[in-house]
């Protein structure tokens, strides 16, 4: 099964299950969790079911395309369902069946792995799912988001698309993955890996990045004051990515580092509270439908 077929299969599967199939969010971020489809929607009482592909950037993971398993840009397949259904593990196993992995033929394990992202005041408990010893999925019951208790609790399922497809295709390098039957993942992304690794580690201008961080932060602050939830959230995402770029350059000193994370966290908390207040003022519109996106 090629890379795009894996995505299509998961879309088909989760769409049929009743998830809204959303599109990637057009701002750089370190994980699918940081898409507003997850980060904001996990907050508050409204039900929600969503699935989407999210491109993720982790500048420090760049290896100039030389490491077969590690890249600074990759894709997650993200599912978020609130409240978490009772039979979610079985549903997940069915999604593996849809991908051609029969759980009966393999050793599938749910191994404790709890998730925490202090920079956005979020944590949850869950597992990494092992398929014959390979971690292919992350499962998390969200407990807090933006410092707010999640109620009801969402379940987040994150498939590592490259890892999973490498398993399905039996290839040992991410760049050898068949995106289609003709074009490889390497054809699409190798040059970008090399160039962006160079950018992340060598060519980015720390002065500019520091300035950008400050500007995004100011902008976020201004927008928070005007209670513009999404625009403020987007500026926070930009702050977070700019911080990651600075981190990759190794120019954030220790004391600054804690302070920067603290600054992002405080904004994330504010935006979470603002979002909740906004939805409340709107009367939590999605509460009307029985299912997440029916309204």
């Amino acid at each position: 099964m090629n890379f795009q077929a894996v995505i299509a299969t998961l879309h088909q599967f989760w769409g049929t299950y009743g998830c809204l199939i959303a599109q990637p969010y057009d701002i750089e971020k370190g994980a699918g969790t940081k898409s507003p489809h997850t980060f904001l929607r996990a907050i508050g009482p409204e039900p929600w079911r969503v699935a989407y592909v999210e491109p993720c950037r982790r500048p420090t993971d760049g290896r100039y395309g030389e490491n077969p398993n590690r890249v600074q840009h990759y894709y997650q397949y993200q599912v978020l369902i609130k409240p978490s259904p009772d039979n979610i593990q079985e549903i997940y196993l069915d999604s593996l069946r849809a991908l051609g992995v029969q759980p009966e033929d393999h050793d599938i394990r749910f191994v404790e792995d709890n998730w925490e992202d202090a920079a956005v005041g979020a944590w949850g408990v869950g597992w990494e799912v092992w398929l014959d010893g390979m971690e292919v999925t992350q499962f998390t019951y969200f407990q807090q988001c933006g410092g707010l208790d999640c109620h009801p609790v969402s379940i987040e399922i994150t498939y590592g698309l490259e890892r999973l497809t490498m398993y399905l295709q039996g290839v040992n390098s991410i760049f050898d993955l068949g995106w289609t039957d003709e074009v490889t993942y390497g054809d699409v992304h190798l040059q970008g890996e090399i160039e962006n690794s160079t950018y992340n580690f060598e060519a980015s201008d720390p002065e500019t990045l520091f300035t950008l961080f400050k500007l995004y932060e100011q902008e976020a602050g201004r927008l928070l004051e005007r209670a513009l939830v999404l625009p403020a959230f987007e500026q926070i995402l930009k702050c977070s990515h700019t911080f990651n770029l600075l981190d990759a350059r190794g120019v954030i000193s220790v004391t600054e580092r804690t302070r920067y994370i603290g600054r992002v966290r405080s904004m994330a908390r504010q935006v979470a509270q603002l979002y909740l207040k906004q939805r409340e003022a709107m009367g939590f519109p999605l509460l009307k439908g029985e299912h997440g996106n029916a309204a």
Binding site: P68, N69, D105, H106, D107, L131, D132, G133, M134, Y167, G170, N172
Partner: peptide, 12 residues
Amino acid sequence: IIAAGNERVIRA
């Protein structure tokens, strides 16, 4: 099958 899968993981 399970051994083969694990062998690929440890190899990586």
